[in-house]
Nucleic acid binder design. Sequence first.
RNA 1: GUGCCCGUAGCUCAGUUGGAUAGAGCGCCAGACUGCGGAUCUGGAGGUCGGGAGUUCGAAUCUCCCCGGGCACGCCA
Length: 545
Amino acid sequence: MLRRMIEDEIAKAVEEIFSIDSVNFKVEIPPERFGEFSSNVAMVLTRKLRMNPREIAEKLKERLRESEIFEDVRIDGPGFLNFDLRNEIYLESLRRIIKNPESFGRRERKKMKVQIEFVSANPTGPLTVGHGRQAIIGDVLSNVFDELGYDVVREYYFNDAGRQMDLLARSLWVRYNELFGRNYEIPEDGYHGSYLIEMARKLKEDVGDRFVDRWDEDVLEFFKERAKNEMFEMIKKTLEKLGVKFDVYFNEKTLIEDGTVEEVLNILESKGMIYEKDGAIWLKVSELIDENDKVLVRSNGTPTYFLTDIAYHYNKFKRGFEKVYDIWGSDHHGHVPRMKAAMKALGFPDDFLNIIIHQFVTLKRGGREVKMSTRSGEFVTLDELVNTVGVDPTRYFFAMIDPNTHMVFDMDLAVSRSMDNPVYYVQYAHARIRSLFEKAKEKGIDYRELEDLEELSLKDEKLIMRDMDIFEEILEDVVKDSAPNRLTTYVENLVSRFHAYYTDNLILDVESPKLSNARLNLCRGMEIVLKRTFSILGITAPERM
RNA sequence: GUGCCCGUAGCUCAGUUGGAUAGAGCGCCAGACUGCGGAUCUGGAGGUCGGGAGUUCGAAUCUCCCCGGGCACGCCA
């Protein structure tokens, strides 16, 4: 928490000198030539104080130089304050890391419940690579929330009733009959994917010819049930393979059965937010935002998806979540404003519902885009992707791109076990460190934890310690921006610095046992930060590669 | 047509509560081990940050217009 430390020093100085107790300034890591940390505080104060930024900086500099944490304070450019910290400050940070190998970065429990809802695919087909992206964004985000002390619930919402499931059942039935030489047509909006052929084969084994040429209500129910169970099994298997686990699978149906839908409708009515028109019931969306009103109950009496989704979020609220996050593909973005409006209509706090939209994924293989045609059923499934490129690369690749960026997943790169592949680049650092500890034993260099640290005095060593220290703040950035890629970007920078340091400096030198031990301690800190990062990303920390 | 997201090096992407000479990886070129793992490291070439205007001490970042791509505009989910 070096950054916080510097902020406090600056805030104190500002208060003492200018009697201003709250300023919105930043402490950040500047380009290397300017120093170890920097702040824009003088520039931010310019307007308030009606003074030249360099003048302000000059006053602050004099005061800050008296502080015990700074080795040097300089003014550069338009009025930046640039800082170098005393070596001991960094050593203390490193000690803290080494003393908390399992919990560095973890915060105290906040007693605050957060829910993250993602994937939420209906059991009508295998998960797509888009679901994969969503699964990893959601999973990593959940891990980070957990690190920050929240009680996180990962939830999967699904609908196994309705027309789509009927179509799936009928499609499966047609495939099943094909196995007996019958020629029925898959319905126009039905499911053509080859996974149903496979499923039909298993079904034939189990039930023989019982349902050949036979189709009625009971058969429909049977096929629906069968298809649903098989699909969910497939879906869960894929998720498990990827290391994604849900705490709750929530069936949309229960909201109707337990009366939540009706309750919500009554609440909205009591608030005067609904009206009847053309035999349907509408929500006055247009009174809340600049959008058209939407139907809640169809003229045939059935609730729309919109209504049950409102009911679902009402249910979430009643369960006591402080905040909920929904992760949706960009094809659902049109749903965002009206859901927000509905939350407002129910009187929920503005920051209760948070929606993370992620852009689509396209696959690239052999230098070309893989065509993803759902109609023909010939698409690469998430399961195939994981089988092809492996779990670590799949997870890392999905995590490393900003959710808002349309992503091109390069399968050739992901599959390559070479330096091109960022996953192996970061994992290699870990393997290298483990190997150093092995080598130390061979060379007869004892590792004495927390000793000899004062031997660390190189600029590169300070910068590595600084970068390890900001791990904690990176976690905050991840949730603040809902961007898991903050973490991968961070670890790539950290690792790059470490590799360069390793190349320039001999870690294990039998001639200098104290220095060697100090550097091993540095490596130990590095190992801890890497392990913590990898565990949040859900990838392995290999001993050897 | 309207709305949302995106457009940064040949490719894939960082960087946005407005800050210093815009970064990384890959690819390309040239280098580094009879010392701890070369899955590494060092250097170089490569940019009108899609285009234009504006806001201001300062814009990749904010505003407006235009161009290009994706998505959405249902009593579907």
